[in-house]
């Protein structure tokens, strides 16, 4: 579904690459995790896949369903089915959750959204993610707690029904109960749409107690240094990233 080939990218107008010769292949229905120390480019990877304006790709390619998406706008990537659940969702004053999501749904599906059906779907989904329905009419993420913002991201995901989900630090700002609710909703979604692929970006394996991955990758020195199963994440928690260096025999210890 998603194939990243020898990707080099940098912040626009800066020479140093953040990712270098980075490659990754994610097939339909697979769940992958990327872990790594602070500042190794995990969130950059998420933003580059989505087409963030601050970054440019100097080499390599990103294919989605076999087609390069590098020349596509951010909204066209979203329309193809890519969804980035953001680490710190933006607050937009004056634009209500309701009009935002209704517009998004109309654009993604290419169909006129029936207001009654939309409101009913929203109310049902808001209940599932444990968000108060009055948030529908509030400005986007305005006055929301960290947990409510993340739940709002999952609400959007469930309404827009993407094929490929990137979860960037989903667990940051979430208490144990909220994390459980959010992960339960993601698991329900994956059960309903089993072809959906997921890329989880995280520092901690806490989220992996709820969402079970097939692959865990360690990102360091601008590329993937090691790939393993779920157990690799727990080794990291126990040994730290220095431990990973030793495990793979890397001389470049931090």
């Amino acid at each position: 579904m998603l194939e990243i080939k020898n990707l080099c990218c940098n912040v626009k107008d800066e020479k140093e690459n953040i990712l270098e010769d980075f490659s990754l292949k994610i097939k339909k229905g697979e769940i992958h995790v990327i872990m790594g120390p602070n500042g190794t480019g995990k969130s950059t990877l998420a933003k580059v896949i989505m087409g963030h304006y601050k970054y440019e790709v100097s080499k390599g390619d990103i294919l989605f369903d076999g087609e390069s998406i590098l020349n596509l706008s951010v909204s066209d990537r979203a329309k193809k089915g890519i969804f980035l659940c953001m680490q710190d969702p933006t607050v937009i004053e004056g634009v209500t959750n309701s009009e935002f999501l209704r517009t998004a749904l109309g654009e993604v599906t290419g169909e006129k959204v029936n207001l009654y059906t939309f409101i009913k779907d929203m109310e049902k989904t808001m209940e599932e993610v444990n968000l108060n329905s009055n948030m529908l009419h509030r400005s986007l993420n305005m006055g929301f707690s960290g947990g409510e913002k993340k739940k709002n991201e999952i609400l959007q995901l469930k309404i827009l029904k993407p094929k490929f989900i990137i979860l960037d630090e989903l667990d940051s700002g979430l208490d144990v109960d909220s994390l459980r609710i959010v992960c339960q909703n993601i698991n329900d979604y994956l059960e309903e749409y089993p072809d959906t692929a997921v890329l989880i970006i995280t520092h901690y394996p806490r989220i992996l107690e709820y969402i079970k991955p097939q692959y865990v990758h360690i990102l360091k020195d601008k590329k993937i240094l090691k790939t393993g199963g779920e157990e690799l994440a727990f080794e990291i928690e126990k040994e730290g990233y220095k431990g990973v260096n030793i495990m793979i025999g890397n001389e470049n210890h931090e």
Binding site: Y53, S75, M86, I92, A104, E107
Partner: peptide, 28 residues
């Protein structure tokens, strides 16, 4: 703000529709 537009576009909303939503929110 570019970040606002990126967020909206990342949900599939075209640039024109983003501007329309932002203008409405700003002026009303």
């Amino acid at each position: 703000r570019d970040e606002d537009i990126f967020y909206m576009e990342s949900r599939g909303i075209s640039r024109d529709a983003c501007n329309r939503l932002l203008l409405n929110g700003f002026l009303i």
